[in-house]
Design a protein around this nucleic acid. Structure first.
Length: 638
RNA sequence: GCCCUUGUAGCUCAGCUGGUAGAGCAAUUGAUUUGUAAUCAAUAGGUCCGCGGUUCGAAUCCGUGCGGGGGCACCA
């Protein structure tokens, strides 16, 4: 006589054990039709699980997160089923749900082709149409291991071996096909619907370990309605349009080439953008009390050994052997060089905090497969700074870094920032009381920022806790950019010290911080965030002056000169093309302001403005226009 | 680094199962002198990523190297 409590508090009484489907039917016919799975006292269950005792039950439909995830999970099963029907002998491994979809990893000698993907997709549709019923069995683990071994599924038997002793080994059948699975699943293959699509094939290591065999992973996306699927595919398409590699080429900002994989060849316009960002940062940092320094790109191996980099990151460092056989390393980080600057001369507690910034170009030998446009390169410029301070100054300094970072992100159009705070890892250096202090100081800064934050336990650096700044772009993607780390280790290793009040020498705390992280990467993110339509003040080419015909060339040239004279980048288009053509061309190249000059403008000493992405026209006196763009040419916070 | 995939004109791409290359845009020249997203015409433009092999003959097939892309692993 189970009594079933529903989420709204209502109670249903049944004479005998009852399936989830029955419960749904009792509530309403439409719910029964929509129902996919349920939770019983918080545990997710199949709809045909029979409830025997009093419990609270919630029924899930495709509208619920649980419902959608189960659809995706089932689709992964159908994928495996289809693959094994089409390609006998293929071994199955795991097939989890991920953001927006699912994947399944297979072991098979021949690679899956794009064409196979289509065939598999068709077969999956067929299986949905067959509407095969699902049923669940619980097996004895020994039997399960032997069974999967016998049918040649060595990965599955390995997985079962790893299931903890106390847990049930459940097997799900969809028709005759069966798979080891925790469940829950939909009651039949027809319930999945057809709003899925296989998206790509890729390699993936068994158990995510590069020492293991490489499997073939098939990715797919699945949704509860056709509309959602289409919207998702549309989103992907939109993201592709924003790809900074594509836009970078179209906008003539930079290129890559074989001679130096992972290093940027900046074109005039890209470099101008780069310089604008640096000069903006300089202003902000000077206001914040930073002093800019610059340290060598190439430093003796001995320094890297002393700092610990040689041992820990040696494999990713570029080195250079001189004709007299000395080994130097090209810096992968700026900190050791910065500490050497700090080490010049005696420092007193009265000097602290000392904030040294450096736009340092660093080189890291990244694995070839990791390279990705501007987002992952082998040579990049950090907007780095190191703050030397006392333990007591940590909180205040962290706070000011956080404020600076937020202001800068905001200026560049990112208002949505979240923080990731990581505290002490198991393997670490330094006394616990210093860790206590620095963790508390950092956390205080995090809280004071009033931003959403997550705590990543034990994920700090071995030398200190850290905050990572994650910004969300215009289409909802998260990018980790800034970082702030408390370092209790490096200053000591490299012999940094200051004279304290009592006359004794002490080791300063060092804060590492980067706001953009890598200028190169940040520019990539900026381009994608704005889909190439950069704000006026950082746009590399800000104005294009367009004479309507040859007769107005001189006026246009004059206007162009005046704009350039006030430090705004402008060009004049004297080509023999009609106005429509020029507007199209310069709009596509994402120039923020187009100035049209014809008879009307010459006669009245005005210009007609057309803004990017607007077909409105605005006529204005030239003088007023110059004033206006002078104001526009500043960062919002300046 | 690993798996798959890919490399043709400045750009985007076509080129079936082998017979030494083609389009659109851009460029150049000429005509047109244009009022808010492509005016018309002509011309020129190629070591088909590099190296090696198979073949009478290779952009095409095979091997190998380098680069790009999608993932995995990595990301101080």
């Amino acid at each position: 006589m189970p009594s079933i409590e529903l989420p709204d508090g209502k109670k249903l009484k049944f004479k005998e054990k009852v399936s989830g489907l029955k419960v749904a039917e009792t509530i309403s016919k439409s719910l029964a039709k929509e129902a996919l799975l349920m939770s019983v006292d918080g545990d997710l269950r199949d709809l045909n699980f029979e409830i025997e005792k009093d419990s609270s039950v919630k029924i899930f439909t495709p509208k619920d997160k649980e419902g959608l995830e189960t659809i995706r999970h089932d689709t992964a099963h159908i994928l495996a089923m289809a693959v094994q029907e089409l390609f006998p002998g293929t071994q199955v491994t795991i097939g989890p749900v991920i953001d927006n979809g699912f994947y399944y990893d297979f072991s098979r000698k021949e690679p899956f082709t794009e064409n196979d993907l289509k065939k598999i997709e068709q077969k999956m549709m067929e299986i949905v149409d067959r509407n095969e019923p699902t049923h669940r069995e619980v097996w004895n683990r020994k039997r399960a291991i032997e069974h999967f071994k016998k049918i040649g599924e060595k990965y599955k038997s390995e997985i079962i071996k790893d299931i903890p002793e106390g847990e049930e080994v459940s097997i799900y059948y969809h028709g005759k096909w069966h798979d080891l699975c925790r469940g829950p699943h939909l009651s039949s293959t027809g319930k999945i619907g057809k709003n899925f699509k296989l998206t790509k094939v890729a390699g993936a290591y068994w158990r995510g370990d590069s020492k293991n065999e490489m499997l073939q992973r098939i990715y797919g996306t699945a949704w509860s309605t056709k509309k959602e699927l289409d919207e998702y595919l549309k989103r992907i398409e939109e993201a592709e349009k924003r790809d900074h590699r594509k836009l970078g080429k179209e906008m003539d900002l930079f290129h890559f080439r074989e001679e130096s994989p992972g290093s940027v060849f900046w074109h005039e316009k890209g470099w101008s953008l780069f310089q604008k960002l640096i000069s903006y940062m300089r202003t902000k940092q000077n206001e914040g009390g930073y002093k800019e320094i610059n340290t060598p790109e190439i430093l003796d191996r001995a320094l890297w050994e002393k700092s610990g980099h040689w041992e820990k990151f040696g494999e990713n460092m570029y080195t250079s052997t001189t004709p007299d056989e000395k080994i130097f390393a090209i810096k992968p980080m700026n900190c050791p060089g910065c500490i050497q600057v700090y080490n010049q001369g005696l420092k007193s507690y009265r000097d602290l905090p000392i904030k040294m910034s450096e736009f340092g170009k660093v080189h890291r030998y990244e694995p070839s497969g990791a390279l990705h446009g501007l987002l992952r390169v082998r040579a990049f410029t950090q907007d780095d700074a190191h703050i030397f301070c006392t333990e007591d100054q940590i909180t205040e300094e962290c706070l000011s870094v956080t404020n600076l970072i937020l202001e800068i992100y905001k200026d560049l159009g990112f208002e949505n920032v979240i923080l990731k705070y990581s505290d002490r890892p198991e393997v670490r250096v330094g006394d616990d009381h210093v860790w206590d202090k620095s963790e508390a100081a950092l956390l205080k800064a995090v809280k004071a920022s009033k931003l959403e934050y997550s705590v990543n336990k034990g994920e700090g650096a071995f030398y200190g806790p850290k905050i990572e700044f994650v910004l969300r772009d215009a289409i909802g993607r998260d990018w980790q950019c800034g970082t702030l780390q408390v370092d209790l280790n490096l200053p000591e290793r490299l012999g940094a010290s200051f004279v304290d009040k009592d006359g004794s020498k002490k080791v300063p705390v060092m804060l590492h911080r980067a706001l953009f992280g890598s200028l190169e990467r940040f520019i990539g993110i900026l381009i994608e965030n704005y889909a190439g339509k950069l704000p006026f003040w950082i746009s590399p080419l800000q104005v294009m002056v367009i004479p309507i015909s040859e007769d107005f060339d001189n006026y246009a040239k004059e206007v162009n000169k005046k704009i350039n004279n006030i430090g705004i980048s402008s060009e004049v288009d004297l080509k023999n093309h009609n106005l429509n053509y020029k507007i199209r061309e310069h709009s596509l190249s994402k120039i923020p302001l187009l100035l049209i000059c014809g008879k009307k403008e010459v006669d009245s000493n005005t210009v007609t403005i057309r803004r990017l992405d607007s077909n409105k026209q605005e006529n204005m006196e030239l003088k007023r226009f110059l004033k206006k763009i002078t104001a526009l040419n500043k960062a919002p916070s300046n």
